[in-house]
Simulated scan of single mutants.
Amino acid sequence: MSFAASEAVKYLIDEHDAKSAAIESLKTSVFEWVSAVVGLKNKELPAFIFIDELDRCRPSYAVEMLETIKHIFDIDGVVFVVATDTEQLQHAVKAVYGEGFDAKIYLGRFFNSRYSLKAPNLENFLEVHSDASKLSGDYLRDLKIEVLPFNEDAKATLRNISVILDAFKVSARTAIQIADRVVATISNMPRGSKIDILMLTALLCIKEKDHNLFDEIVSGKFERVVQSGDSKKTIYLNDFLETYIPESSHMRHIEMNFDPQEYAPNFKIYSHQNAVANPYTSGIYRFYLLEYLQEIFSSHFGSAGKNRSGIFFLGEGRRSPTQEQTPLEKLCKTLTEEYKKHQYDTDAQMLGVPALLWVKFLYIRNKFESIDMDEYKDFVELASPLDWMGKDELPEVD
């Protein structure tokens, strides 16, 4: 037994010495390779090795990688830059060493310096990572696809998408995925189709964050009953979204560059009266994100409670045989009244309530309200775009 123990210890020592010699040999080889590159390419040390997304690796692999870098690749002239989500990496460490292990101190042993990068500006970020050309006016006209809100400049549409993504607080990675899915959906739609890009983007965000909430919305069954004192209160989607997205996003602008004269050169306010000239001019119309979500998005999915803005919800007031005005006539009347309030302020004519009224006008006139909830569900789940491939195109529309 004594002889066996002695031989085992000798073997372990030899193994350790062999590993140490191999590590030193590897370090020397890497240093010589780096030095050769410096000499041949006229570069200067240090050489940087970048390791990205270590937090997304298997926990045991991530820990082994860190320990290998620390103990083996500690080489003069070589700097390792590890890009990672530190919080997630701490979870990986705890998965290996136990929940009570102090992962923060453990990770501190590996890094000489730490730098935190700010969250990217989504608008600029998406311009780099998304195919914005398929959102341009020329591309959409070629496909005869109508979108709302329409902007000739694809960057303006991408900016609107980024406002939605930012409001729903999706990660940068998810933002790219959602933007790509919006583009893919549009590019695979049949000629003559139409879609509200804001509605599609918002639904994609909601599905990523809360699948159950998404199902409630697209089924038209969203409703919450909460206790309020001694009574119960019903919370509809328009009120829920006010608290669901951060207050800092409520007054973010969505923009639409269009010419009202193209769609309504004259206003017909009452069927028995003569039309009056449309006073609105061409330009960039801006409406608030929260008002859009409350009065168009929520209304479209059948969950809009009390109207607090003073302008009616989408589809509200459909005319019966005994009513005097159609929804479009009612909108024309309200637009006329809004114009009179701001007739000496061009900017005010294109901001807030008037701009949202024009969106509602386009919804009704161009039949965007005809896109039902099931269609939007298909859009989001990418069922319809795949099913369309190879089918006959829809008939062209004027």
Rank of each mutant, 00 (worst) to 15 (best):
A62H: 06
E24N: 15
A175N: 04
E152S: 08
I105V: 12
T346D: 09
A132L: 06
S384E: 07
G108A: 07
A62M: 06
M189T: 00
F50A: 11
R191Y: 00
E208N: 10
K70R: 11
S271G: 10
F361E: 08
S35D: 14
D215V: 09
S60L: 12
I186E: 03
H272N: 13
M199E: 11
E381T: 15
F287D: 00
R318S: 12
K377N: 09
L204W: 00
L198C: 03
K118T: 05
S20E: 15
R159M: 09
V79P: 04
A184F: 07
E24D: 11
P265W: 11
K221P: 03
V226T: 03
D131R: 10
T326G: 07
L213M: 08
L362I: 15
P265E: 14
V81A: 11
D259F: 03
R58G: 05
I176V: 15
K118M: 07
Q261I: 03
L158G: 05
S193C: 06
N238L: 01
V34R: 13
A119I: 00
A36V: 00
R252F: 07
K94L: 07
L290P: 04
T84S: 12
K306S: 10
R191P: 02
Y285S: 01
S136D: 03
M199K: 12
D55H: 15
L293E: 02
F379K: 03
K144T: 06
P260G: 01
I217P: 01
A275I: 12
Y270W: 14
Y11R: 14
T243P: 03
A179T: 08
I269M: 14
C332I: 02
D180G: 08
A167F: 02
L135R: 02
N160Q: 08
L126D: 03
S384R: 09
M389A: 13
E32L: 13
W33Q: 14
P59I: 04
A47I: 06
A95K: 13
L331W: 01
A348Q: 04
S25Y: 11
E396P: 01
N121S: 10
K70Q: 05
V183P: 09
D372W: 04
V225T: 14
S171H: 00
R173F: 09
L386K: 12
E32Q: 14
D153V: 12
A304Y: 08
Y292F: 15
D153G: 02
V63D: 02
G317N: 09
D345F: 07
S29E: 15
T281A: 14
T281H: 07
R114Q: 11
G390F: 06
K377H: 05
Y61T: 12
L213C: 06
A8C: 06
V183M: 05
E208D: 11
D166K: 10
Y61E: 13
S219Q: 11
G100P: 06
F111C: 04
K194W: 04
S187W: 00
D374V: 00
G229N: 02
F313R: 06
D153L: 10
L140F: 04
Y244I: 03
V81D: 02
A175V: 03
T336C: 07
V380A: 10
A5V: 10
L213T: 09
I195W: 01
Y344C: 05
G192F: 02
H71E: 12
L382W: 13
E375N: 09
